[in-house]
């Protein structure tokens, strides 16, 4: 099973900790209560960021600290080297970086698979277990602890829906942002498996988008394997064919990848599909 279980003890390394985004989000992860043990930026060993010691390499950091995860903020052109370094040190990784060449992603994912490690992303917001730990860039204050597991291809759209859930008093068990690239590590099916087995999760929300067939495959999987209620929202109903809508993975080509095909497949699997973001909250209230 893909282990997406977060606790207050989960040890985390930040690669690219001295950069603008790395340092900014280290502060917020630490404030949220995440156990950030060390940072890595080549050439910056001996510095501190938010009181976290910085090392030249992941291996150097692990000499003094224990960690299970690394979160990577390293710019796209250096991200592959950073990821391979973390995988080499047996860490699961969350890749925040966007714009990673697809061949680099492919190499990273295959290396991680060889070692049975979990990759979240690239181009993802990370994941969070409210009130316990977050490894990611999501604004922590909008989340609330509860029993709904959420998995999504999109970052900000997830915040949108979470914000509405929390406002209505509906809390979340774990929220997983799998990322919007065509090639990603953890996918809908991995997250669904985790939620099915996770004792803290009672209902599941799946937020998908146009492009590819991940939602269709998730629907097939739900039919056979998921007994907990699933609610879905598919964004991009009004997107025209052949135009890449921001995410490299979000493009309708020919008959495949359209919102309609995804919604139909999900409905066949007895998933309730919302028409608008606010519809997710309505459906959660009645199931």
């Amino acid at each position: 099973m893909t282990n997406l279980n977060l606790t207050k003890e989960t040890g985390i390394i930040v690669q690219g900790i001295t950069g603008k985004h790395g340092s900014f989000h280290t502060k917020f992860m630490k404030e949220y209560g995440s156990n950030i043990v060390a940072g890595v930026t080549p050439g910056k060993q001996g510095q501190e960021v938010e009181g976290i010691p910085v090392y030249n390499s992941v291996a150097d950091a692990l000499k003094n600290h224990k960690a299970q995860w690394s979160i990577i903020f390293v710019p796209a052109r250096f991200a592959k080297a950073a990821a391979i370094e973390a995988i080499g040190a047996n860490l699961n990784i969350v890749m925040i970086t966007e714009g990673i060449p697809v061949h680099d992603s492919m190499d990273i994912l295959n290396k991680a698979k060889e070692k049975n490690l979990v990759v979240l992303g690239p181009n993802c917001p990370g994941f969070i277990r409210p009130d316990h730990c977050k490894i990611g860039i999501m604004p922590g204050h909008i989340f609330k602890s509860g029993n709904v597991g959420v998995v999504s291809r999109s970052g900000t759209l997830t915040y949108e829906i979470i914000n509405q859930m929390t406002a209505k008093g509906i809390g979340q068990s774990t929220v997983v942002g799998i990322g919007g690239d065509p090639l990603i590590g953890t996918d809908f099916i991995d997250a669904l498996k985790f939620f099915q087995d996770d004792p803290n999760t009672e209902k599941i929300v799946l937020i998908g988008e146009i492009g590819g067939d991940a939602e269709e495959r998730a629907a097939e999987f739900i039919k056979e394997n998921i007994s907990k209620p699933v609610i879905a929202y598919i964004v991009g109903r009004t997107a025209p064919e052949g135009k890449k809508m921001g995410h490299a993975g979000a493009i309708i080509s020919g008959s495949s990848g359209s919102a309609k095909s995804k919604i139909n497949k999900l409905r066949e699997a007895k998933v309730k599909v919302a028409k608008l973001p606010s519809g997710v909250i309505e459906l959660l209230g009645i199931c």
């Binding site: 999109s154 759209l157 988008e209 009004t238 809508m245 921001g246 995410h247």
Partner: peptide
């Protein structure tokens, strides 16, 4: 103007609605 492909696509869907 929005941030994040998903949120912008959602915005387009809501506008249409």
């Amino acid at each position: 103007i929005g941030n994040g492909a998903g949120l912008v696509m959602a915005t387009l869907d809501v506008l249409k609605e």
